[in-house]
Design a protein around this nucleic acid. Sequence first.
RNA 1: GGGCGCGUAGCUCAGUGGGAGAGCGCUCGCCUCACACGCGAGAGGUCGCUGGUUCGAACCCAGCCGCGCCCACCA
Length: 851
Amino acid sequence: MADERLKALEEKTRYESGEVEARVFAEWMKGGYFHPKAEGDPADNFSVAIPPPNVTGALHMGHALNGSMQDALVRMNRMRGRNALWTLGTDHAGIATQAVVEKMLAKEGTSRQELGREAFVERVWAWKEEYGSRIVEQYKRLGASLDYENERFTLDQGYVRAVYRVFKQLYDKGYIYRDNYMVNWDPGSQSAISDLEVENREVEDTLYSIDYPVEGSDRVLTVATVRPETMLADTAVAVNPDDERYAGLIGEHCILPLVGRRIPVIADAHVDPEFGTGALKITPGHDPNDFEIGRRHGLEEIGVIAPDGRMSEAAGEFAGLAAAEAQEAVVAALREQGRLRAEEPYVHSVPFSERSGARIEPLISLQWFCRMDELAAPAIEVVERDEVRITPPRWKRVYLDWMREIRPWCVSRQLWWGHRIPVWYCDPCEETYVAEQAPERCGACGGELRQEEDVLDPWFSSALWPFATLGWPEQTPELRAFYPTSFLTTAREILFLWVARMIMTGLEFAGDVPFRDVYVHSVIQARDGRRMSKSLGTGVDPLEEIDAHGADALRFGLLAMSSTQDVRFSDAKVQQGADLANKLWNASRLILLNVADVEAAPRPRTVEDRWLLSRLEATIASVTARLEEYDFAHAAAEAYAFFWSELCDWYLEIVKPRLYESEEEVSATLLWALERVLALLHPLMPFVSEEIWSYHPSRRGHLVVHPFPEVEESLRDPAAEEEVRAGIELTRRLRAWRDLVEAPAATVLPARAEGVEPREFVGRLARFEFEADGGDPVASVGPVKVLASAEIDAEAVAARLEARRGELRSEVKRAEGKLGNEKFVARAPAEVVEEERRKLERYRMELAELA
RNA sequence: GGGCGCGUAGCUCAGUGGGAGAGCGCUCGCCUCACACGCGAGAGGUCGCUGGUUCGAACCCAGCCGCGCCCACCA
């Protein structure tokens, strides 16, 4: 190694992530390591399709966690020599992207309507070209080993082809149809949205009770509603068929106040006789339940609220008012007519759009739907049979429950940014064409065609992600080599929106499941336990964490935090990662600056060497197993514990004298151990491990493609582990003893060992001299007799002895009690009883020594 | 209304049938020639409550009390 490099290593006593990460990442990119060959079989290769972030997005903690997990597995498998592909791409994110550009236009004093559709879509593309790569650059900061050479976008040319192919085939199968149906209308984005994009929130409204007079009688039916303005669209009053109070009224009519319409009194089991008066006003045009009831009874569907949130012509004198204004006006009119019986505060849950935040306006509109039951059936089976494994397993049932109740999916959106639905209409002859490419003219009359205005729900295209990104519908080498992908990590909130749909389309169109494993990761909450949210201001910015502590620190921290349950963001865990990076750096300096010029190899000379090698292999086995079962938190914790405690605190301290003399055996062994530790940690902390590796004398190429350590069973040595463990235990007891008697830290205390000779390191690390002459024994610590000396306070020793005797007496009592229990001796497993007897024996012996 | 998860050291979390753990924080002692982002030694938990099963329960079962999430059409 060049002397300047060694000198730099010697001088840098701290690991500085800031001056390493960009340089190392550039080296990886230059090496082309992230772009695998499209060769081999999917079963031997490893591939992951990144959950595509929105083009408008910025890296948030969820991305960082998800990315850290995916990258750990992709890196591990790449190191194992597999063709490892982590597919990169972004989602066009209809509403979000359209909203960003619309906001820009508003600032310029114009609007999308003013621009027109074509010019607007061009503007969005221009925006995407300029700003759409932000989040990709942010993934690089995290160290994500994505295939940056092949970035996909849900609206790129090939992808659109895949979307149109799927739409056409679903249409031809009869799954896709157009219908007038009740949808969740989002007045914010001026579009229909799917059930899954609706969230219910508790709201305090007023519950109005209104009297509907019964035709030809003095009776009134009192109905209750929180939306009195919708009464203008009422077409019936419903009561429960078993409700005796109203039995005689079924088939009669009410006269709708304000409107004067005759509406029938009908019987429907949906009505709860216990609620209110047991009479329910039916508004098929503006309430999902009423819509269902209306269809059952063939009621007229009247719409009085238009898509813009204002009252339509059908609202008569209220036309043109905003719905809220209409509500006030209707209530006032009813009050004036004496029809308003009661108003009371009422808390109930109300649907809101997750996209725009606006209160959902249920209304009937002409939309495109996709029937899901046939697609769902095989997607249910593959999960039932664990051909797609869901981890943690409790989500399997959640998935299955939802899939078994699946309902048609409203796939059309009234937006301009997205996949314009590939349907063309001929107005004169009322023909409809569904095609992958625009037909020239109408086949029937030769007339001009008009393309459907609506675009597809962005989730429609996301549903094709694992195979569309690999080039489907072409049978590309990528598709052959990397489909099915190996696994998917995701947040539980998109289990239905995305994961379930990918499984359905994968089976239907790509002929196989889209991935073998789904790992549903936990949610990282804000430090105070609230959800991280931009609007609440509770988000923690991963890029700030990277700037402050390094990408490795953040990655380690997130993996260490992750578990199967939600956790609060922990600054301490990120700090632990930063500390670990620094510790790695410094332990490596110690090793690299002192070793002899030898090949890295396990060359144990002492039992401590065999101990370290054995512990290292145990750690490799365990950490690897944890990663393979997606237990990232334990993988991180175990790697940390081995490195920090066993390798640094014990082994390095034990072998320092040999290392300073540049002994060959210990040098070779340490270089070997360091190489394996760096490789093992690389998937978790890629930057610092790669950087240190650049100083390692065994280095021939980058660590990113260095073989991942395979367990060497021959290095396992239980006897050495036990012997050194005992030495460590004795060292600890001696240190604790000297602290208790307040012996000065630097002094070496005289002692004699009886029976077995303690390992050399015990005396050195605990600062005891076992060959000491003279002095009377003042205390026993295990096999060690401590001799009297000026450094030791006799009173403290006496107190210590008494305390230890107390401990021993209580241990003896506990063990005696247990062994005195006949049932314990009779029923507990023999080895448990035997172990208890051995303990009792030991305690009695030590107590006898101290007496 | 149904389902799921969680209540363990001051804090954040592991542990899921045989003597309570980690990181941080705290106390004491160390600038020991890799690291003070360090080293050594400690203090600190009747494992939410009540019953039950078991020789033995933080762990299994039942009930209760708190907290969170998901699904669901009660006006």
